[in-house]
Structure formats: C-alpha cells, structure tokens
Nucleic acid binder design. Structure first.
Lengths: 242, 242
DNA sequence: CGACGCGTTGAGCAGACTCAATCACAGTGG
DNA sequence: CCACTGTGATTGAGTCTGCTCAACGCGTCG
C-alpha cells in the first residue's frame, strides 16, 4: 500500500514480516516468537530516542524499518556513537542483566522498531530453545563486530577508516537486498566521525579524497561506489558483519 | 605448598576454587558446573596461546590464575589487542555460534585456565538455568565493556587513555582482593599501546608524564597509584568493569 | 659475558585537529 | 514566490599531538 520502491535503499520491504538476522546468515522468523511475546510496534521520528541510559531495562527492540544509532555516554558529557542499526538488528541486548539500560538508542530517520518485553522473552526462551540460542549468538556476534571495529580504529588511518566504513555500509545494504554500489548514508558526518573516532571535518576531507581518487562518488549523503577493489585495498579488506 | 603470598598481586588464591565473576558482582561457583561439565586444567607458559583464530571452537576457558590477552587479527597482518583477562574471566564466549574461534588468546605470564567443553556446557544449561543466564549476562557485560573502551578511545587523548587504563587495572586488582594502589602490569608496553590504540613510545611518555605529575610512581612494570582522584580527573572517571 | 628484548628518551615530521569562512539545502514566514 | 534562517557539509590555514626514526639504558637469559 505504501512506499513505491525508490531507487536507492529507502524504507525496505515495509509490510513484510520482520526477522531476526544472525551473523551466520540465519534468520529467525518473528512469527514463532509472537506466539509467546506480545509485540508492540513503535514508530520513532528522526532524532527521537528509543531508550536512554539509566531508564529501566524492560524490553528489547527489533529494527523493522529505518535506522538507529547507539550512543555511549560518560558522566562528564563525553559521547560516542558505538554503532548503527538497520532492519533485522536486535537492540537492547547489551543491557541484559542490568536493571537499567546502559546506553542510548536514537532514530536517524523516521523508523520503526518492534518492542519485545524482556520478561516475556525470558519465558519464551523456555518454549523456544532456538530463541535462547539466537540471543546468545547475537550477543557473541555483537562482541565480534565491536572488536573488529576496535581493530579498525587501532590500526587504520583516517582515510582508510572511512573506506572500511563505506564497505561495511555497502555490505549491510547488500545483505538487506539493496544496492551495495549506490546508497544514501542515513547518519550525519558528525555521527560518522564520532563512530570512527575522528572529527567531522576529517571525515569530510577523507570522503572528498576518495572521490578525487575515483574510488567513490559522493555528494552530501549520497554515495556511489566506483571501485570496490580499490576501497578494499585501502581498508585492508576483512571486516566482520553485524 | 606453593606461592608464598608476595607483596604485590602475584599468583592469587591459587588453590581456592575458581569462580565465574559477573558484572554485577555475582559469582557463580564452578563446583555446581563441574557436576555436569568435565573440567580440564590447562597450564600456559608466558607467550603460549590458549586458542587461535581459525581453530575449531570446542570449549570456553575460565581463567584460574595468571593473565591473558585477547588479540584480533586481520588478513593483512594488522593486529590489535582487544582485552586483558584475569582470574574469574570466561574466555571464548565471543566465538559462540561459530565453528571456529574468531580471535587469539595468549598467556601474558605463566597462567592456568580451566577448559569447559562447549557441548557439555550447552547440556549443563538445561539442568542449570542460572548457567545459561550467566553466560548471556557475561556476554552482555563484554559488549558494555568493549563499548566503554570505544568511548574512551574515541574521546580521550593519549595521556588520559593511559590514566583510564591504570584505573581500570587498579579496579580489577581490587576486585580480586589485591592492592589497587600498588601492582605489577602483566603486559608489555607494546600490548598496552595496541590496546589503547597508541604507539609504545607514546605510552611510555604518558606514564613518565603521570609520574612527573606525581599521580603515579612507575618503574618499568611496577606501578604505584599516588593520587587516585587526580587520575580520575584526568580519565574523566566513568568506566565499566569487565 | 654478550645478546636480545623491553623500556625510556630525544628530535623532527606529518596527520589529524582547531578555528574559521563559505556553500548547499530545507524549512519558515513574509 | 522569494528572502531569511539554521543546520549540515565542505574547504582552507595554521597548530599541535602523537608518530617515526634513532640512540641508549636496563635486565634477563642463554
């Protein structure tokens, strides 16, 4: 009924069922879970928070459409974007075992996430052993992904970091069935810079440089990948997906 | 019979039972697990590997004594220390859901880890629901810890990173019952530098600087914390423990 | 004892940051 | 409809932190 499929990575198979996508490519259909867990669909406007650090931990959230960022923040006001989430990603798992959420999640655009109350999930795990395995696996994959970004941040110069980031975004779009060669970045330069541990001016310059090298074409948030191999050579290939 | 308790943080309550220490301070006694899981005690010489990326994922390892580092490595040879493990830490969880381990674990000194075969753990989870919860909680805590280091790496200058690192080490020693004011760093400057995304010369200079500021006293690997509050002020306080 | 690994320190350099100006675009209101 | 405004992105100039290269000291182990 809505969203005529636009050229480049917009709203996503909007009315298809959501799924839980695992690192190894497995997808756990949410319908099985829905039998045990009451799901509430939550819409978020761009900039709106899903949950904030300190709020009581009550539910996990499955991204259905749009995109989100997760932010870590320190007492003294320092702030860091630690990840970007797209359709199929389960948010809130990092707070399992705590009374309160440990980080912030904010919508980058108008988005929708499905709220899965945690107590109900725990009960459902008793009936659905694969759900328990799924959550454990998702957490492990998150650790691996974070560590592979730590490797990237610790070993690559600014320009290479940006290249690696673009390849990651491209791979994620491809995984969702969108073009890996032509897409719109959903986050601001500031968010990108924070995630990459750089300043936004540096990210901007790096993108311009990659453009000048004919590896990509970039205009504001629209990116076209012109030379994947060139990008890979810069980024040092390997990167674990979410 | 062995290890006369030395001045500063050596071998640890060597013959006491191991335990699984959780983020919230909970400790799960390993005796309960031992009834279901065959435990093999593995000694590792300094520099020896526990497991390597690519090897089949067969077991988790619980640090009993000594210390280990976890290393992420890229195809092109880039390498990054992603964490240091001490008594009570469960290693290998990041590889859950994979056929092969995703990273390397290497002993920093002569150490011992207890091998817990993963299939047996999975079976034990059916009898011990708190074990399942424990593993999930440990994974979530790992994610939070990694993210809090990402925050640190993304927002603090070299000297502040080193201060934050020392405070973390101190807190971990304190948590194990050792002195938080006087301890021996078990890792080389190179490993510290890799973890902190710096060069070893920079770490060395930072330590010397903290020494000159009378915040610490340092001679090679021996560290005394002289001014905790001063260090905290530099590091910006907050840091999530493992 | 000599060799090697590890740690410290110095000098010079460069990549990323800071500060600042300009441009592009979306949204608002006259 | 278009001027006005605010946010986000780009680009430039100059600075500084952390890196590179190199020398040297200390301690350990063969």
């Amino acid at each position: 009924m809505n969203a005529p499929t636009s050229v480049i990575g917009t709203a996503a198979a909007t009315e298809a069922n959501a799924f839980l996508s695992l690192a190894n490519g497995d997808r756990l259909d949410i319908e099985a879970i829905r039998q045990h867990v009451p799901v509430r669909r939550c819409k978020h406007a761009a900039g709106q928070g899903v949950y904030h650090a300190g709020q009581p931990f009550l539910a996990l959230y499955l991204v259905h459409s749009g995109s989100y960022k997760t932010c870590e923040l320190a007492d003294d006001g320092r702030e860091q974007v630690t990840g970007f989430r797209m359709r199929g990603s389960l948010m809130g798992t990092e707070s399992i075992g705590l009374k309160n959420y440990s980080c912030d999640v904010i919508a980058l655009e108008d988005s929708e996430a499905w709220e899965l109350p945690y107590p109900a999930i725990l009960r459902a795990c008793l009936h659905l052993p694969e759900l328990q395995a799924y959550i454990t696996g998702a957490l492990a994959a998150e650790v691996r992904s974070d560590r592979s970004w730590m490797l990237m941040l610790g070993t690559l110069a600014a320009e290479r970091r940006v290249a690696a980031f673009l390849l990651d975004v491209a791979a994620r779009y491809a995984h969702l069935g969108y073009s890996a060669k032509h897409f719109i970045l959903r986050m601001s330069r500031i968010d990108m810079a924070s995630f990459l541990a750089l300043k936004h001016e540096t990210v901007s310059r790096a993108l311009s440089r990659l453009h000048d090298l004919h590896l990509i074409s970039v205009q504001r948030r629209e990116v076209q990948v012109l030379d994947v191999d060139g990008l890979r050579a810069l980024a040092g290939s390997g990167l674990v997906l979410n």
